[in-house]
Design a binder for these strands. Structure first.
Lengths: 115, 115
DNA sequence: ATATTATATGCATTGTTCTGCATATAGCAT
DNA sequence: ATGCTATATGCAGAACAATGCATATAATAT
């Protein structure tokens, strides 16, 4: 092993986070600002527990952080490398849209888009 | 599903290729030019069959192409997105070094580095 | 205290990927 | 042809990741 092989292990771990359609979709949503779990749930169309599990993976890898506000928990991306990797594969960030059936402040219009 | 969800499936597939320490190491070697299988075998310190298997994954995803020259088979990267992703995570390309115990033209000094 | 809403966690099952090993092919030299 | 070297392929067992579902926690309201 010529180079520091831990570099490849750690690098692969970063790519593994993005190597999953649901996590990629979640991160794409979070690109345009923070979002709460119920919003991601509405966007992805998956059970809440499923969304929380994927968020946990991203949280434990320090890619996103959570911020509680009452009952809602807002997540946002805190790793700028991830933003650049997303841009390379998904293109430019699109503005977040409101979701029917999502009770969060963003979707019910109580908040400006992409705070 | 708000956006075209095939985009996330395909994007995830690209990241999955990089989400493996050995493939990442192989691609890092290929960044500075083409390399033959025996060279990669010497650099990674893994069995030849193992290297060929990882190369197959990359080849079938059209990330690398192979070029035969006598007994040797040279591989090189043909996807520029992959180069940019590697640069984001591994940093700038380093020049290829020669490997002890590798019989390929590059390592036995019969060829200039990084053709 | 109870109910309700939003989110998190644990666990079992299924599905995928990794890896080692045996063997196959292909080019070159004799 | 035979042998030698470089590379490829197939397959099976092990390791790991994904998913569904039941349940736990935590904040708020009544």
């Amino acid at each position: 092993m010529s180079k520091n092989s831990i570099q490849y292990t750690q690098g692969a771990a970063v790519f593994r986070l993005l190597a999953h359609p649901s996590r990629l979709h979640i991160l794409d949503e979070l690109r345009c600002g923070s979002a709460c779990v119920c919003h991601l749930q509405a966007v992805l169309g998956r059970p809440q527990a499923y969304i929380s599990q994927q968020l946990r993976v991203l949280r434990e890898a320090d890619v996103v952080v959570d911020e509680k506000d009452g009952l809602n928990v807002y997540y946002r991306i805190v790793d700028s490398r991830i933003l650049r990797l997303l841009e390379e594969i998904l293109g430019e960030t699109q503005p977040a849209q409101r979701m029917e059936g999502c009770p969060c402040p963003h979707c019910t219009g109580q908040e400006v888009c992409c705070s």
